[in-house]
Design a protein around this nucleic acid. Sequence first.
DNA 1: ATCCTTTTTTAAATCGATTTAAATGCTAGG
DNA 2: CCTAGCATTTAAATCGATTTAAAAAAGGAT
Lengths: 334, 334
Amino acid sequence: MGAALPVKVADIAKACGVSPATVSLVLKGSPLVNAKTREKVEAEIKRSGYVYNRAAANLRKQVSTVVALIINDLANPFFAEFASGVDNYLAQRGFVTLLGHSGESVERQAQVLNSLVQHSPVGIILSPAEHTEAEDLTMLNRNLPVLVFNREVPGSWNFLGLDNQTGAEKACQHLLHLGHQQIVFVGGHADSPSCSQRRAGYARAMQLAGKKEYQRFFESAPTKRGGFECASQILEHLADQTPSGFVCYNDAVALGVCQALANKRIRVGWQASVVGFDDIQEAGDHFPPLTTMTTSPKALGERAAEMIFKIRPDTVLHEIVPVELMIRQSTGPK
Amino acid sequence: MGAALPVKVADIAKACGVSPATVSLVLKGSPLVNAKTREKVEAEIKRSGYVYNRAAANLRKQVSTVVALIINDLANPFFAEFASGVDNYLAQRGFVTLLGHSGESVERQAQVLNSLVQHSPVGIILSPAEHTEAEDLTMLNRNLPVLVFNREVPGSWNFLGLDNQTGAEKACQHLLHLGHQQIVFVGGHADSPSCSQRRAGYARAMQLAGKKEYQRFFESAPTKRGGFECASQILEHLADQTPSGFVCYNDAVALGVCQALANKRIRVGWQASVVGFDDIQEAGDHFPPLTTMTTSPKALGERAAEMIFKIRPDTVLHEIVPVELMIRQSTGPK
DNA sequence: ATCCTTTTTTAAATCGATTTAAATGCTAGG
DNA sequence: CCTAGCATTTAAATCGATTTAAAAAAGGAT
């Protein structure tokens, strides 16, 4: 039935006894073509199962309908939801997402970037791998719009990120208002910018509350397992003076902390309070639902995609999205 | 510094005093060009910051380096990990992932597919939205390789899926061997093929064990919250005759069930046993780590990508991947 | 009919890279 | 000094669609 070889504009032109130029005008919906001709051409387009070749058209038109998206860790729901937000927005505007996954490896990220720029994207949204340096991004030509997401990278990049410091400060204040005295900060790698920002927010809240001397920081992988192991150790070693408030690096860590507490028969939301960060889907689905700092990752993705089209060569965008306290049941009065 | 306009092969040719053909040969690494010439051209390529235009090259070469991937729900870790597996494999082979997200909407899926096919992908990996029918996929009737993943769609499609029935049967047998008497099946929508297959496996195991009369099916959203709510009700209504074994539709549901049990102070792995399905990342990170039916979603993604290149016009691939029992601590002897 | 508009249609150039077939330059043998 | 044979280089066509500038057709007025 359908032609074995892909149908081209020229084929349609021939079948209709018109020129390729006319067919192109029809495809474009131009008012220049005669109604009868248009009808004939459109019928043939449908009949032949013609598929528009956007690559060829874009080449000639000198435009692109592609946006590249590089994600550091898709298995992390925060980034997966972000990606879905990006794609949603782009699809609405008739663009398409070219996905790359770095798996937190700077080398792979470089390979992926090199491969993606060759597809002439309109712009690049990069959620960088850990420890990405300016020299890892040299393949990014200066007049290609690049938006760095979530983690700052040395150099002047268009950036979209969260207000980590204020967020963690609010999180800690929330626990302070509930009457908690011994509050610790759990999780994340101290050398990651987002972690140090969140730590700073916690520190500020503690200081303003006159609790500077109690500050405690614990390091862990930014995962559920990391949070679980870290909190388990805390509970063992600080057995005599167990903290009752846990400000966590992110939701994954917070969920791990909750499990460590549950494991020790400490009721989260009653005997201890836990605050997360990110508001991933699971935060709300968890039991008890997690109090956390929220900015929908999906909304962030949509915003990132929107920003790509606002980037201009002469200025640098730098948007810090406020995060809000979402009070659920993992926190309660002391 | 860098040219304002993108550098083309012709520019490099001019700068080196050679023809575009020679530059092309250099790019290709052809042994035809003289060593000195090659050196000169390569220096200019580096100096000018030339970026290869793959769209133009692919058009001329009549090839594609793109594979389209349409995912029904990226917020679900199972599919997000699958996507990362696809991209990993493709990147290794020098291909690139064009991502589309349907959000379980058949209409959006159609739009996304229409948009993606215009980018002439080598093939399409489709993890279909719920209730996708043959007529929703009419835009795919070229001889374009299509691989349907995870959910069967009416019609003859190349398919990669899990052995749901045998998997659930093994899961249930595991609980039977541990000595559990009252085993229920929790979660999923009965009208989804994968759910009915898993139910059938559970039913078979129960029947073979002579427990046909005890079979119990409970329906819920295939999410953590769904599992939690469903199990909470079970525990309430069957209070007198609480089941001790839970075969769950998937890991998300299983995690919800675990929480409902923990909530009732029933120790998972001791007083009750829970088996999941999928082995998502979190299954292993959970406490207690979840016994589940495993086929790494990432490995599945890699396999799917591999299969795309094996599809031939005259045959239909249909691969059902066995799932294996991964015993962790959410199950134990009665 | 003729000339001038206005409407439709189209030939040909173009986007950037590749490839074929042919041309050029070189060396060695006669 | 010529030429066969080899190593390099290149002019020109090509992929599929768009666009410009110009031609062809249709319609209207005189």
